[in-house]
Design a protein around this nucleic acid. Structure first.
Lengths: 211, 211
DNA sequence: TTACTATGTCACCGTATAGTGACATTATTG
DNA sequence: CAATAATGTCACTATACGGTGACATAGTAA
């Protein structure tokens, strides 16, 4: 019953690398990015910090490796749902509302992703740039799954959606520390049901044809 | 030509206090909240750090005093404009769109406020809690200036507006480091004209009666 | 002048950080 | 078995931080 990540002192380079990568995730989720550093990660992994330099080159490279290793971004499938055709049957506004609701739910499930989203607002590093790139590709591909029928709306679709994505990010990042925003609760699942409802109305009314 | 804040070594408690408060603002605007600390502030003020403890009690109290001293939140008048009655003549959606546009412009003018908005997403302290309280009062009073006529809309007005406020905050905080968000530019005045336009459409179409 | 207080300077403590060089131990290969 | 390379431990530097005590100097009041 000794998995690699539990065995201590075993001379196993790969296991040690995994312990370090694991430690990054645990620290991020538990303490936030402010607590991240060579000393803290090494302590968390129960390993000497010199191995960070020896096996990865330094903190930046460790973060880069962690970024490659993780599942901290929702897949397109998680946003479209199991049956994409069902989503495609909806009008454009409802379609995006549903997608954004699922998107928010997936983000809220990922404590590490929340933390990186917060970090992204403060500084750029190996981890945040990976998340950024993932989001850009995600959004571009998502756009192809949610085609912009010219008959569906005359609104600036991409900007409208990204405004709502920004709002979702803001509320999610904020909810790490505070349960409300100027009186509007943003923390629990029930709170988000109401937020989803508001986003639904905004999408449905904004993303439609005519004026 | 020696204003108190320029004179060095002069034995003037009040001038020193002002130098310290000034240093906080300059550091925040120039280096961001990450650079803020007793050592950095004292260095910036050209003053010994012990005076922070002696005159304020510590960093927290200095931040508190700075928070009281500043003008880093838009006034209601700046959001409603010089002639509020002009605003009141507009339908609810247009009214809020105009107000949010002015709100965003005022925030973008205040580098220190941008920084505190970012800080607020990371941790709570004397400064962020002051900004938060100012925003809550601001929003409450703003709501009385933008009365929620039941005939105007059936949407959840407060939540809808605060979602857009959140989006604005997110873009403003982000624009400190990055000029775009997944391809949408969010930095220059022209960029914000387009964002204002999108917000305008969202407000006008969402905040109206019926379904 | 003398005594006292307010203001400011300086040197230090303990702690944490990022990073490095020397050493010990284990595994592997000849 | 002996030599070598890989893996891990330890001790150390240099730097920065928040915080404090001792001291110097200026202004004021007796």
């Amino acid at each position: 019953m000794t998995t690699p990540t539990e065995t201590k002192g075993a001379r196993d380079k790969e296991a040690t690398r995994l312990r370090l990568l694991d430690a990054v995730g645990n620290l991020l989720a538990r303490e936030g990015f402010g607590a991240l550093g060579v000393n803290a990660v090494a302590r968390e992994a129960g390993v000497d910090k010199v191995l960070i330099y020896r096996y990865f080159g330094g903190m930046d490279e460790l973060l880069h490796a962690f970024g490659q290793s993780g599942d901290f971004w929702p897949s397109i499938a998680q946003v479209t749902g199991d049956d994409p055709s069902e989503l495609m049957a909806l009008p454009l506004g409802e379609r995006w509302a549903k997608g954004l609701s699922r998107y928010a739910r997936e983000l809220r499930r990922r404590p590490v992703t929340k933390e990186i989203l917060a970090w992204e607002q403060i500084e750029q590093n190996e981890l945040t740039s990976i998340l950024q790139q993932a989001r850009e590709e995600w959004f571009e591909e998502l756009m192809t799954h949610f085609p912009d029928d010219p008959d569906s709306t005359d609104a600036d679709l991409a900007t409208t959606v990204l405004l709502l994505v920004g709002a979702i990010h803001y509320f999610i990042v904020r909810s790490r520390l505070q349960a409300d925003f100027s009186g509007v609760p943003i923390d629990t699942d029930e709170d988000w049901e109401r937020l989803d409802q508001v986003i639904f109305t905004m999408c449905r009314r904004t993303l439609r044809p005519g004026d």
